[in-house]
Design a protein around this nucleic acid. Structure first.
Length: 486
RNA sequence: AGCGGUAUCGUCUAGUGGUUAGGACGGCAGAUUCUCAUUCUGCAAACACGGGUUCAAUUCCCGUUACCGCCGCCA
């Protein structure tokens, strides 16, 4: 069997989209599973929309997700260059080949003429297909048009190619995820393969690049199905081997529309900024269409690769459920080794003066606050009360600290606490005793603790109370408690 | 409009010509805890509809509906 070579070919007109990441993942998995090569190619034929910033973002995001490529713009490879704009001198030769064989022709139609055709089709409620006005232009006519200053685009002669290689106008192929697919090519207009400015169009450049890079399987979103028929015809007209195709369902937002910023993050880098772990992101996105044979959903990319069978991917669209991603993220945060967690939390702690705490206190703070984290960024709010002298009350905290019972508890707490030895173990004991004492007076343990918690942290909920007191320290605890007493 | 694709709990999905249709997230309830959360236990929740084929259909076929996609000198 020939070598498996797959590619991801993002267009750098934006940051790496989570949907592109999933397509990249499935390509990567397929390559891994089959000992093949995973290739990155940047499709930047549209210079207007391309920027280096986006290219860097694509590189960084893919790397962060662990989707390392074997060949690409930065690492090179035997079939470079891997950036489309650097391949512009390659395409004309193949355009000429098609022209010579009669599978392509020059089209002098102006944008206005084309626009008129489209408008007419639209008015008649007919699907728009190019009129083929320019197929049979004579040399004289072409010369005349050229003399007028018109620059021709090159169109592909769909019907000529179809009939040269197939018995009817129906073109079929076996999609490795969707199965047998077919299309009546008489409904496909002669499409442009080279723009009048000389640049190749997407459908053409993709074929040439995939052909030259010896891509064996093209795995991409199902929005490309209609392009596939066009591309197959180009391969055939060029006498090239047609790769296998596989089309994945799309990722939809919860309202079934296209996933866009208004639903939340869409770029991998935005998810990361919001505090998602790339491990969770890639695991989550794998579960959109793929399911583990052992029912164990939490898996690394390598583990998934072992269990991956492309033909078992669900071919339907799937909705991007942020809730499940969040659950998975919290799961991955829980599994993170302590030092790694600390490292990843640092960016979200920048607003605080970390020198207020000793390294021991800092570690303890993280230990007692890590449990409820859903996003790494949740740490910012979770540790707020460890810093600064004064307490910042939230609504419930303020209400709680001002109740009569709280005030009484605090008036009892301050003098007692002053004599406490401020160690973790002792605090645990003392607080337990303190709760018990108040329970005898008819105050529920949680009410007792609420008073202290509210006075010291400004809130009614948060981390383990013993730990909080330990980290905040005796002096600050007492100062805050005293201040809370009216 | 045309063409193509898809259809199992709200969501991601497993699965089968005869199953109590399974799991996960979310939801609800309970237990634990100094609070929130975590954790644990339990509960509710699905085969889109209509025709066939068959002893039997969620499963196979056809149609309908719904949804998604495509119809660019964008990629």
């Amino acid at each position: 069997m020939e070598e498996v070579r797959v590619r991801i070919a993002p267009s750098p007109s934006g940051n790496l989209h989570i949907g592109t990441a999933r397509t990249a993942l499935f390509n990567y998995l397929f390559a891994k599973k089959n000992n093949g090569k995973f290739i990155l190619r940047i499709e930047d034929t549209d210079a207007e929309r391309t920027s280096q910033e986006y290219i860097d973002n694509i590189f960084d995001s893919l790397k962060a997700l662990g989707l390392n490529w074997d060949e690409g713009p930065d690492v090179g490879g035997p079939y470079g260059p891997y950036t489309q704009s650097k391949r512009f001198d390659i395409y004309p030769k193949y355009i000429q080949k098609l022209l010579d064989a009669g599978y392509a022709y020059e089209c002098f139609c102006t944008p206005e003429e084309l626009e008129a055709e489209k408008a007419e089709a639209h008015a008649n409620k007919k699907p728009y297909v190019y009129s083929r006005k320019c197929v049979n232009l004579t040399e004289e006519e072409k010369e005349k048009l050229r003399a007028e200053g018109r620059k021709p685009a090159i169109r592909f002669n769909v019907q000529k190619a179809q009939h040269a290689f197939h018995d009817s106008s129906i073109l079929t192929f076996d999609d490795i995820v969707k199965g047998h697919l077919h299309m009546d090519t008489s409904l496909i207009g002669d499409f442009v393969i080279q723009k009048s400015n000389g640049a190749p169009t997407y459908n053409f450049a993709v074929v040439i690049d995939d052909m030259l890079m010896k891509i064996s399987h093209v795995i991409r979103g199902e929005d490309h199905i209609s392009n596939t028929y066009k591309q197959i015809l180009i391969y055939e007209a060029l006498g090239a081997e047609v790769p296998k195709f596989g089309h994945l369902g799309m990722i939809l937002a919860p309202d079934r529309s296209k996933l866009s910023k208004r639903h939340g993050a869409t770029a991998v880098s935005d998810f990361v900024k919001e505090g998602y772990l790339t491990e969770a992101l890639i695991n989550f996105v794998a579960l959109l269409g793929w399911s583990p044979s052992d029912g164990q959903e939490i898996k690394t990319v390598d583990e998934i690769a072992k269990d991956f069978r492309i033909n078992e991917i669900s071919s339907s669209n799937s909705i991007f459920e942020y809730d499940k991603l969040k659950w998975m993220n919290s799961h991955y945060i829980k599994m993170l080794p302590f030092d790694e967690l600390k490292k990843r939390l640092m960016p979200y702690l920048e607003k605080y003066d970390l020198s207020e705490l000793t390294p021991q206190q800092f570690d303890k703070m993280i230990e007692i606050t890590r449990e409820p984290l859903v996003l790494l960024s949740d740490i910012t709010d979770a540790v707020e009360y460890f810093f600064g002298e004064d307490v910042h009350y939230d609504k419930k905290g303020e209400d709680t600290v001002n109740t009569e019972v709280s005030q009484n508890v605090l008036k009892d707490f301050v003098p007692k606490a002053e004599s406490w030895e401020w160690t973790d173990e002792n605090l645990h004991q003392k607080l337990e005793q303190f709760r018990a004492d108040w329970k005898e007076k008819g105050v529920k343990p949680k009410v007792t603790m609420w008073a202290i918690r509210a006075a010291v942290t400004g809130r009614t909920c948060g981390a383990d109370m013993v730990g909080i007191l330990d980290v905040i320290g005796k002096d600050k605890t007492l100062r805050r408690a005293k201040k809370a007493i009216k």
